[in-house]
Amino acid sequence: MLELVIISTLNGVLYGMLLFLMASGLTLIFSMMGVLNFAHASFYMLGAFFGYQISKFTGFWVGLVVAPVVVGGIGALVERYGLRNVHRHGHVPELLFTFGLAYVIEEVVQMVWGKLPVDYRVPGALDFPAFTVFGTNYPAYKLFMLAISVAIFIALLVALTRTRVGLIIQAALTHPNMVAMLGHDVPKVFMLVFGVGTGLAAVAGVIAGPALVTQANMAGLLGPILFVVVVVGGLGSLTGAFAASLLIGLVQTFAISLDVSVASVLQSLGIDAAPSGGVLGDLWNVTIAQIGPIIPYLLLVLVLIARPTGLLGNREA
């Protein structure tokens, strides 16, 4: 039992941090800027492919630095020449714009790199088991992911709450006219935030690419769970997103290790009332492990009903 708890906790924390790594850029754009960026996962994918391409020539570490800068630049250009024009028409055109952009990016990636997964490897320097718990290895690369996640969290938190730029960003979100009156270039601030947000997505891509599968449909596979993290954590709250990532990582991991169903619980209480067939029988016998990966979405629905601001948010979704 202890073994199960320790291993599940470790796996949960590692997965949660991977989620935060991927969601951090989205938090910045979606919850700080208020732009629902459907193309976020596409920038993440671009990051992974750029990282892969660069790593083929110069190694992983150069890719880790260069790819996010390039993708962030593309993001800033997209904001400057695309999003800014549709921004004044409100949220729906914005949403449609990023929706279309996601398809464009996916097609371009398919044209350049093809539809098959590419062989993007963990760098040799991190390709060893860092430690072993109860006979299970934990690769150094996963710890590296965890460290980067925590570093990004702290850096963003400090930048947003302790620096002048952060103050202006927060003010520009709620009172753009006032901030402009005070002499700040609000559109430029938005461009910067969007660029940094997409750059962070690319960091996640470069790092998650070797750990997951780098292929042209990776954006579509990842998309939904990130919105869950941001909404459950609460709009406008970085700490919320961090907590939600951990929560979802842990809940999902523990759920998978529980082979418990309604029928088995009742049976252990000495009640043998399970219907054997039909829809009811299925519901009765489905284990928590089986529904584990669906739990975050259930959580999303419940949070929106019971607490529309999310765990730590201050705005309604």
Binding site: I7, N11, Y15, T136, T253, I294
Partner: peptide, 21 residues
């Protein structure tokens, strides 16, 4: 005897932990 949702799982480590156990 495990079933996981089709193409929705990003991290199989918990399943591997179960297999190992």
């Amino acid at each position: 005897d495990e079933v996981a949702p089709l193409q929705k799982v990003n991290d199989f480590s918990p399943y591997i932990a179960k297999i190992k156990a």
